[in-house]
């Protein structure tokens, strides 16, 4: 029964006025001319130069050109907006915002788009869809055997279009197509949770991508391609136990989750919503997304006594973003997106 007795909460409307708009600040031009990069290696690295397309990095012969650069007229020129990276003599420019580029060993979350012969096509927010070969998944029951033609006909029982999968990049072929695999018990189909998409450049490479945030009882999977999965810890444990039992005992029968295994309490939903809004907040502020930063936003929102939906309000977003920027610099590694920190 819909609660028409429920008082409708306040509706917020804000009117902009032209005076309130931020004035463009004129940034003084630094030396635009070709800078001779014959200074220390460390200096370039520490200066964290920001490049725009067409900006000259160095003279042609001095460095090897990596991604994001090209030779022109005797100069090495950047072709994307981003930071310079340098490893010895190799110079590359890593873009701030680009489509996800897969590398072997990356852990990602993908969405099945198509079922083809002996493989699935998976959308991972990259330039092309990645392939999940039939031979690269674990068959139900865990048996190791050759895939037969009857397996091929039963692909629909495993993954259907629009399903979410948790997988790892296996190999990159010569023509640029990428194969992923789920050959591990922790990988596979994701069910009964919430999906969220953020720019892939905000995801940091780390040892673990599956985080069980104990303080809130929420499981978070941060795929390196920017696809994020949020679910309730308790429900996922129950679900996993049921699936494993099913695999051991009767894997040849279709898997049907009973209703009580799919239940999520209202409190857990509130926590999941809060985590979801925190991650959106970080994405909007272009800040790196990892469990530490998510928990910071989460705790701050609880300290400010906000409900989950208040985190959608621009005023609160502004407040929390300013708070985060005042935290010590080690936490705010917005610029060092290519560093590999040690995660517990």
């Amino acid at each position: 029964m819909n609660e028409t007795n429920n008082p409708i909460s306040e509706i917020n409307i804000e009117i902009f006025s032209p005076q309130k708009r931020l004035k463009l600040r004129h940034i003084e031009k630094k030396n635009e001319n070709e800078m001779e990069v014959d200074t220390d290696q460390d200096e370039i690295y520490k200066s964290r130069r920001l490049m725009i397309p067409g900006q000259s990095i160095a003279k042609e012969g001095e460095y090897l050109k990596g991604h994001g650069t090209f030779h022109f007229d005797g100069n090495l020129i950047a072709s994307v907006c981003g930071n310079i990276e340098r490893v010895n003599k190799l110079v590359s420019v890593r873009a701030f915002k680009s489509r996800y580029n897969g590398e072997i060993g990356d852990i990602i979350v993908g969405r099945i788009t198509e079922i083809q012969g002996k493989r699935w096509k998976v959308d991972v927010n990259a330039r092309q869809d990645y392939f999940l070969m039939l031979s690269a998944i674990n068959l139900p029951g865990g048996i190791q055997r050759r895939r037969t033609s009857s397996d091929e006909l039963q692909m629909r029982n495993l993954f259907v279009e629009n399903d979410l999968v948790y997988a790892e990049v296996q190999q990159i072929m010569g023509d640029g197509s990428v194969a992923i695999h789920t050959r591990n018990l922790k990988y596979g189909k994701l069910q009964n949770g919430c999906f969220l998409k953020v720019p892939s450049n905000l995801m940091k490479r780390s040892k673990m991508h599956f985080h069980s945030l104990d303080e809130c009882g929420v499981d978070v999977i941060l795929g390196l391609n920017g696809y994020i999965w949020i679910a309730d810890t308790e429900q996922q444990r129950k679900q996993q136990a049921f699936i494993q039992k099913h695999e051991r005992e009767n894997f040849d029968q279709p898997l049907v989750l009973p209703e009580d295994h799919k239940e999520i309490t209202k409190e857990s939903r509130e926590r999941i919503a809060r985590i979801k809004n925190s991650i959106s907040l970080l994405a909007e502020g272009f800040m790196v997304i990892h469990p530490k930063s998510i928990m910071q936003v989460y705790k701050q929102s609880i300290k400010m006594a906000l409900s989950a939906k208040d985190l959608l309000h621009p005023e609160y977003i502004r407040q929390i973003t300013t708070y985060l920027s005042t935290l010590p610099l080690e936490n705010d590694s917005n610029l060092d997106m290519h560093e590999y920190p040690e995660e517990q």
């Binding site: 009117i15 006025s17 509130e270 919503a273 979801k276 939906k309 985190l311 959608l312």
Partner: peptide, 17 residues
């Protein structure tokens, strides 16, 4: 309780110019 924490009758914030 919707996915982003709002209830069924909650409107998002909007700005009008």
């Amino acid at each position: 309780l919707r996915a982003d924490g709002r209830s069924r009758n909650d409107y998002r914030h909007f700005s009008l110019e």
